[in-house]
Simulated scan of single mutants.
Amino acid sequence: MIDHLDHLVLTTADEAGCIRFYTEVLGMQLERFVGGTPPVTRQAFKFGQQKINLHVKGREFEPKANTPVPGALDLCFIAAIPLDQVIERLATAQVPIVEGPVMRTGATGKIRSVYVRDPDLNLIEISELAG
Results as ranks from 00 to 15, higher is better:
102 V>L: 06
110 K>F: 13
116 V>C: 07
121 L>D: 11
63 P>A: 14
113 S>E: 06
67 T>N: 15
61 F>P: 06
85 Q>H: 15
66 N>H: 13
16 A>L: 11
100 G>V: 00
109 G>K: 03
96 P>H: 08
130 A>F: 05
117 R>T: 06
9 V>L: 00
123 L>A: 06
61 F>E: 08
8 L>C: 04
117 R>S: 03
66 N>Q: 14
35 G>Y: 05
25 V>G: 01
57 K>Q: 14
19 I>H: 12
92 T>Q: 14
59 R>Q: 11
92 T>L: 09
11 T>W: 08
36 G>K: 02
51 K>R: 12
39 P>M: 07
123 L>D: 03
2 I>C: 06
47 F>M: 14
101 P>N: 07
50 Q>D: 02
21 F>R: 04
56 V>Y: 07
51 K>S: 10
131 G>H: 10
4 H>A: 11
79 A>N: 02
11 T>C: 04
85 Q>W: 14
125 E>P: 00
129 L>D: 05
14 D>K: 06
42 R>D: 05
1 M>W: 08
98 V>I: 02
95 V>Y: 00
104 R>Y: 04
44 A>Q: 02
47 F>P: 12
89 R>K: 15
29 Q>F: 10
64 K>C: 12
107 A>N: 12
120 D>G: 01
34 V>R: 11
116 V>T: 13
53 N>G: 10
127 S>E: 12
87 I>F: 01
68 P>T: 11
41 T>E: 10
23 T>N: 04
35 G>T: 12
94 Q>N: 09
126 I>C: 04
83 L>S: 07
120 D>W: 02
66 N>S: 14
114 V>P: 03
95 V>C: 03
79 A>E: 04
7 H>C: 06
60 E>P: 06
75 L>E: 09
15 E>Y: 12
38 P>E: 02
14 D>A: 05
96 P>T: 10
87 I>R: 03
12 T>S: 15
48 G>H: 06
106 G>P: 05
128 E>C: 14
2 I>A: 13
1 M>R: 14
56 V>S: 13
128 E>V: 10
12 T>D: 15
46 K>L: 11
42 R>H: 00
120 D>Y: 00
91 A>F: 01
113 S>V: 13
75 L>R: 09
55 H>P: 04
21 F>H: 08
115 Y>A: 03
4 H>Y: 15
83 L>D: 07
93 A>E: 15
130 A>S: 09
90 L>C: 11
6 D>H: 09
56 V>E: 11
84 D>E: 08
100 G>L: 00
